[in-house]
Amino acid sequence: MQRAEIDFTSDPDNTAWHGLIEQRLIPLARGAGFDELVLFGLQLALVEAVNNIIEHAYDMARGQPIAISGECAADALRYRLRDRGQPMPLPLPPGAPAAPDASGGRGWQIIRAGFPDVSYTRRDDINLLTLSRPVPEKP
């Protein structure tokens, strides 16, 4: 099983963590055989999930810890996002399409399009969001 992990701190004005996702986490998905369009969707979904942490869990505060671990098993690609911010309101948003001309509300749609299996737990003041997607069958 292949694994990778990144950690960084929240900063609403900085996108250095985008590069960490692209360079350290997405190669797991590439190795699993996803095509470039799917890889773009996975990268985007991870960015949206981190945006949510920065915006909602940490209320745009700087310097707060965020960690993402990824693993690619025989059955699925999984990323686990951890933060110490406010708990997520439950139930998790279903990711229904926003009205076409709505100003926002597309983040969860993008997350769930990338990762059909999403779960959330909170333990010891740590939020754990797990995003999973079956891997393509090898020819």
Binding site: H18, Q43, L44, V47, E48, N51, D101, A102, S103, G104, R106, G107, I110
Partner: peptide
């Protein structure tokens, strides 16, 4: 090359 939902909101606001 890359745009997230915040970026989409920019063009929607422009359209409006």
């Amino acid at each position: 090359e890359f745009m997230d939902s915040s970026g989409l909101a920019v063009v929607v606001a422009g359209l409006q």
